[in-house]
Design a protein around this nucleic acid. Structure first.
Lengths: 341, 341
DNA sequence: TTGTATGCGTTATCAC
DNA sequence: GTGATAACGCATACAA
């Protein structure tokens, strides 16, 4: 910057102004500065800027994983909402591990983010106190925290589970199963688990059996999990009529396994997923699923960040984004008899 | 930090040392400092540290997109290799747009990354000169640049295309098609295009027709692209025997469309993809594909960064990672007659 | 082993 | 509209 100021024959302060607040410098000096900047290929150092202005321009985001399109979409939506305003999203992911989430939060904090966004409710006490002490807006997304730290925006996963159960029950199904994962120590998918729990709660409320709810394998959800879980389920409970897979990934895996076994979906078995992944649109049959607009979730979160940093009042925001049932071909009607009849 | 130093009764310098270079301070003072750090919940400010040490700890990564598992895997592998060493990966993505890549690089530069990693060859002259002037190691990954800026690590996409063509030809196929995307102005998938070009070049070398090579739709590749492209191809060229989809995504889309049309894969038509996406393992038949270990690519890139920053000589590294043919069920043998016989 | 002085590259603040 | 000065929170270099 020193070089730029010399070349343009102005003080460094004027260079700074020409770059950050162009209106406040005379057009001709501004032009001189900008020319010098271009000639020298000068790029301001944001670390120094942050230090002086006490605004890092960073927004921290903690995801369970990067390798799930829906979470990647959240990151994408958030980034696109914030980039134009000069913010840089710092993406971290926990691989569904609480201990890792905590480490990631600690690391993010060292970059002095102006806001922190975490996926789902923060359960670890250490992480909670870290966030509380950080003294920046904290937003929990993609779930409805029972004990929110501050703000929350997303959807009630438990409600999704109940809704799906009710939907299938209304269609006349009574032999309902589910496929979810199993917490393994530190490794847990709370949101998927909540959908499964909601499903189970609704079954109970209707006096239906819950022994066909499979919690098997570890997070993250995968096609393979669906294939193996449906195998187990069909072997142990051939009477099952409809299965809620708490993610489209295992749902598609289950669908493919059914094809292999010669089980026709939805004639012999109905399948419903969650997440509206692209793959579910092209399978045969296309997958009936519960859709949540994750891209929009990211965008809305970005807007909330902007509001919060823009001096809006600090009252806790609780935004329920809602979800949609997308009926495609994988849910039919109850079979009259047992499988194969 | 001032508070910590007071509470621990040492100078601020000692606090800094206790945190960054624990061995150099006496165990008891170290303990006092660490205790004070814990009590106060102090987290060092990396921006200030960067400024003073002239090392940002940032590594810049420019991907085409976040919402593709393989690229997410690259980010994951890179992050895991660098995190332990205290580096923070700054993830940016261009959405397959050159202009956007340039903007992202410029933005990354303002954070003074210690190395920059870009996906594929950098074609934009502006971006090239930006990287050259940055005076930090530049690594181009996931392709084999004709004009590398400095270092490159990845796989020759053109060679992949040729290899697939040769493979199919050796199996006896002569009516070969391909599905790829079409550059649309700024929006271009160079790597996918290179695979398609390699395929085409090999066909030509064997004197085979190339009119069944479909370049349709815009990047990024999708299931839908595959479904619609195979439809067009089957309608216009029913004689096609085998199709190279330059990504598993369109390959799976094509496979699903074949199911819908009652075309049996691989009996009626053979399909081969690229990328070894999870979904290709559970389809019926499972997808034959060309696998590149993207996670490992990320890790290796991380190691290279570490080497380069560790004072290794600056000679350009050119690493060819190689690829593997994964034969599953979607490639069969040439049909004796036309489709449907 | 610990402390002191200095500066990293920028912006806030106040003066002109 | 522009400039001078003093921070911002740390680490480097050297002194004690």
């Amino acid at each position: 910057m020193r070089d730029v100021s010399r070349l343009a024959n102005v003080s460094r302060m004027t260079v700074s102004r020409a770059l950050n607040d162009p209106e406040t410098v005379r057009p001709d000096t501004r032009a001189r500065v900008l020319q010098a900047v271009a000639d020298l290929g000068y790029v301001p150092d944001r670390a120094a800027g942050s230090l002086a202005s006490r605004r890092s321009g960073f927004i921290g985001l903690v995801l369970p994983t990067l390798t799930n399109v829906n979470f990647a979409s959240v990151a994408h939506g958030l980034t696109s909402a914030l980039r134009a305003k000069g913010f840089q999203v710092l993406i971290a992911y926990s691989e569904y591990r609480q201990s890792e989430a905590e480490a990631q939060i600690r690391n993010l904090l060292s970059h002095r983010p102006e806001a922190i966004i975490v996926t789902g409710e923060v359960y670890s006490p250490a992480a909670r106190s870290l966030l509380l002490r950080a003294d920046v807006p904290v937003i929990e997304i993609a779930d409805d925290p029972a004990r929110a730290i501050q703000h929350a925006i997303g959807v009630s996963n438990h409600a999704v589970g109940r809704f799906v159960a009710r939907h299938l029950i209304e269609k006349g199904f009574t032999r309902l199963g589910a496929i979810s994962s199993m917490p393994q120590g530190d490794l847990v998918d709370h949101r998927g688990g909540a959908r499964c729990n909601g499903f189970e709660d609704e079954l109970r409320a209707h006096g239906l059996p819950t022994d066909m709810i499979m919690r098997t394998g570890a997070a993250p959800f995968s096609y393979e999990l669906g294939a193996s879980a449906i195998s187990q389920l069909l072997d142990s409970h051939p009477e099952v009529e409809a299965v809620f897979c708490v993610s489209d990934l295992p749902a598609v895996g289950a669908l493919m396994e059914c094809q292999r076994r010669g089980i026709s979906v939805p004639r012999d078995l109905s399948l419903i997923g969650f997440g509206d992944f692209d793959i579910g649109r092209v399978t045969n049959p296309a997958l009936t699923t519960v859709q949540v607009d994750f891209l929009e979730l990211g965008r809305r979160t970005g807007q909330l960040v902007l509001e919060l940093l823009g001096g809006a009042d600090e009252t806790a925001r609780m935004v329920e984004l809602g979800f949609n049932l997308v009926e495609r071909g994988s849910v039919g009607v109850p079979r009259s008899g047992p499988l194969g009849s």
